[in-house]
């Protein structure tokens, strides 16, 4: 791993700071040419408002490390929650968030789901499997809201996409 990659990989997500950009799976590439570094990131959702902050944080940290950095965007392939690393999933659980299950990969037309999304979500606080969905949308586009039927705590679940 190059030194520039190590610096870029340690920058954290502005909205979920327990995750590095590498653990979140949005860091796609770091190209080093002498002191010049080009970092490629990809948005989680099309409207993700954290992109500008991610870019600024990357440029700031790489500049501190002595590089002239620029950040580029990759739109394809589209980000999947499957790209969150195992270390990232553990960090989410350690901070009271539920990590996503496997993302759906429909072979044909995308099926309509009129029942609440079926997920095996366990409470990140007490490990109970008795949890219920309260909302498919949360404080950010990438999270749904859940409640534990045992410890009664609400918690956020990072959605599968």
């Amino acid at each position: 791993m190059s030194r520039a990659y190590a610096v870029a990989a340690s920058v954290t997500d502005p909205e979920m700071p327990m995750l590095t950009l590498e653990d979140l799976g949005v860091l796609r590439d770091v190209r080093e040419d002498g002191r010049r570094v080009t970092v490629t990131i990809t948005p989680t959702y099309s409207g993700c408002p954290a992109m500008a902050t991610m870019r600024d944080d990357l440029v700031h940290r790489l500049t501190e490390a002595g590089y002239a950095a620029q950040v580029e965007i990759a739109l394809s392939p589209a980000w999947s929650s499957d790209w969150i690393t195992e270390r990232g999933r553990q960090a989410l659980r350690d901070h009271g968030l539920s990590a996503p299950g496997a993302a759906p990969r429909p072979g044909g037309p995308i099926p309509l789901t009129l029942m609440p999304t079926a997920r095996a979500v366990t409470c990140p606080r007490c490990d109970s499997a008795r949890t219920e969905l309260t909302s498919e949308y949360g404080a950010t586009a990438c999270k749904a809201l859940y409640r534990c039927a045992d410890c009664l705590e609400p918690f956020e679940h990072v959605k599968e996409i």
Binding site: Y45, L75, S76, A78, W79, I110, L114
Partner: peptide
């Protein structure tokens, strides 16, 4: 094509909602 492929995932949630 890339914008559409990304949008598919979002629109799936919108349609279900």
């Amino acid at each position: 094509a890339a914008i559409a492929a990304k949008g598919v995932k979002e629109l799936t949630y919108h349609r279900d909602y």
